[in-house]
Computed example of a mutant assay.
Amino acid sequence: MNFGGKVHGGALMKWIDAAAYACAAGWSGRYCVTVSVGNIRFRQPVLVGHLVELEARIAATGRTSMHIHVTVRAGDPRAHALHRTTDCLIVFVAVDENGAPVPVPAFEPTTPEERRLAHYANDLRRAHRELEAIKPRQA
């Protein structure tokens, strides 16, 4: 809890990482490591005592990587309604026993929502590559 009676953002990030790991490991059938966490958006605070639900799903795959989109919903359990509070895109890589990356099954989006998320993930992948190319060596 933070000083305002809300769940600390770091605690939410830990839950997001755990949910995304479960999704990545389930998809790949392998142990997975977090490569990057980006585009996390805290839309609304999560209040202490509220019910919290995390939904993690594959947004896109590369040869060894999986882009996992996590949505957090929360609300007063007495109100019987949860509202979206946080979104995040996390990239995992499946690895073997020696920590070397291994191929993952390809994800083919079929619904409009899946195609939208795949487009979003692929746009971010391109943007990260472009940013990496101009990043100062000391950064």
Rank of each mutant, 00 (worst) to 15 (best):
I40A: 13
A22G: 06
A22T: 09
A139C: 09
I16R: 00
V72A: 08
A94V: 01
M66A: 09
F107M: 01
P109H: 07
G75N: 08
A139F: 14
Y31F: 12
G9H: 00
A20S: 14
V70T: 10
D96G: 09
A25D: 01
D123A: 08
I90W: 03
F3Q: 13
N98C: 05
E108M: 05
P101W: 00
V104L: 02
A20G: 09
T64A: 11
R84M: 15
E108L: 09
L82N: 11
E130R: 01
M66H: 02
G38K: 05
A127G: 05
V35F: 03
T34N: 03
A20Q: 02
A24T: 01
P101I: 01
L54D: 01
V33L: 15
K135H: 11
G29I: 03
K14H: 12
A127Y: 06
A18T: 10
Y31W: 10
E55I: 14
E113D: 10
A100W: 08
H67Y: 09
E108C: 06
Y120H: 13
E108N: 09
I90E: 14
P103R: 04
T85F: 12
R115G: 01
F107S: 00
Q138A: 15
Y31C: 06
T71Q: 15
L124T: 00
Y31Q: 12
H69G: 03
A127E: 06
H80M: 15
E97S: 02
R116Y: 11
A81V: 13
I68V: 14
G29D: 02
M1N: 12
F3Y: 08
R43K: 13
W27G: 03
K14A: 14
H128Y: 10
